[in-house]
Design a protein around this nucleic acid. Structure first.
Lengths: 122, 122
DNA sequence: TTCTAATTCAACCATGTGGTTGAATATAGA
DNA sequence: TCTATATTCAACCACATGGTTGAATTAGAA
């Protein structure tokens, strides 16, 4: 059910590649917040904060519920799970020394059967 | 030991926010490759590929070993582990319904003690 | 209705990004 | 030594990004 297509991942990783936005997510992990509440800790204009929030929303990382004139934002964890899952593919590379040995063997293997049939998708 | 400071995370997430670079990492997960080997599947110039590789290197996601005139690249998993770990902080938000209930309670809690002492760092 | 608060929009700016091409560098091989 | 290969560098371009300011929009509150 978790989507791993590129456009989504692009947006998610891009959104996460900014400290301000990561801090906003951190804020939302304790409770939902309005736009002004999210903007408050930062020394930037409300308009700038609004743009950051739109980036998070575009990546699907947050959801917004308009209540009168205030916009209430809350975390939407799905895309984070996708990113997490994408990274998990590489988990064996950092987990154990044993896996490292295994990897070496697979490398030799791959090296033997020259460059026929590149199964790499993303 | 895993570093979670912002500049590193910025570079890592930024590097991951591009399909070409993610595909390059995918290639490197089966075996180490030279610059030209990494560039081959893409319809871009070698110079462009070289830039992508530099971005991955800057993020610490790959290591390069110069062997004569060829540059051999291999995966460096550490920073991926950092990103993975960063995301893990939010794991409870997507794992179980029970955690979702717990989160609601924490939200109410946070809401009660107004906005005093924002402990949010990133 | 009128004032004020919450948020976005639009225009603008400096800088970054991903791509190009052509030249430069350095090494392997004849 | 001469030539071909592997890679980077430099200059350039179009467009995205993150920021600004000031005006517009919308909805509570008086």
């Amino acid at each position: 059910m978790v989507e791993l297509e590129s456009p989504q991942l692009n947006a998610v990783f891009h959104a996460l590649g900014d400290v301000t936005r990561r801090r906003m997510l951190r804020q939302l992990s304790s409770s939902e917040r309005t736009v002004s509440e999210l903007a408050e800790p930062f020394d930037i204009s409300l308009a700038a904060a609004s743009k950051h929030i739109k980036a998070l929303e575009a990546a699907g990382l947050i959801r917004r519920e308009v209540r009168g004139r205030t916009h209430m934002c809350r975390l939407n964890p799905g895309p984070m799970a996708s990113a997490h899952q994408w990274l998990s593919t590489y988990e064996r590379f950092w987990t154990s020394r044993l896996d490292l040995l295994e990897q070496r063997l697979r490398e030799d293997d791959a090296r033997k059967q020259s460059q026929t049939s590149e199964g790499d998708k993303e």
